[in-house]
């Protein structure tokens, strides 16, 4: 299981990245996170929904209620232009971190030690 801080830090870029593939709704997002991490990250509703609302308030995502054929309603979220920009920035940052770890762990990193 990922640590709480990591979950907290990664939740926002994670949501942005999922939504960059197209609009989605809360439960679907939770399921996608679970499946893409192989069950490593398990999000709760208590965490996700307030996060979605906060991001909406910040203008990163927008939402719409959609009525399904069976009469049920579902709230879909999608990225705003602002959200896309932030996602790109987040991607660069995480990519850099990822690159750093990949090099460090590859064994041929050139470090000045000692």
């Amino acid at each position: 299981m990922a640590s709480k801080t990591l979950v907290a830090a990664s939740s926002k870029p994670m949501v942005l990245s999922i939504l960059s593939h197209g609009k989605s709704y809360g439960y679907q997002i939770i399921k996608n996170v679970e499946s893409i991490t192989g069950g490593e990250l398990e999000w709760t509703d208590a965490m996700l929904y307030p996060l979605l609302h906060r991001m909406e308030k910040e203008g990163l995502i927008s939402s719409e209620w959609v009525v399904l054929e069976n009469g049920r309603k579902r709230k879909y979220y999608s990225l705003t232009p602002e959200g896309k920009k932030v996602r790109a920035e987040e991607q660069q940052q995480w990519a850099r971190v990822n690159q750093a770890f990949t090099q460090l762990w590859s064994g041929n990193a050139k470090l000045e030690i000692g």
Partner: peptide
């Protein structure tokens, strides 16, 4: 699963509302 801790949810919402 949905609401492991309802109190946590309301707290989170409260914070979101007072952003």
């Amino acid at each position: 699963k949905t609401l492991a801790d309802p109190d946590e949810l309301s707290d989170e919402f409260f914070l979101a509302g007072r952003a």
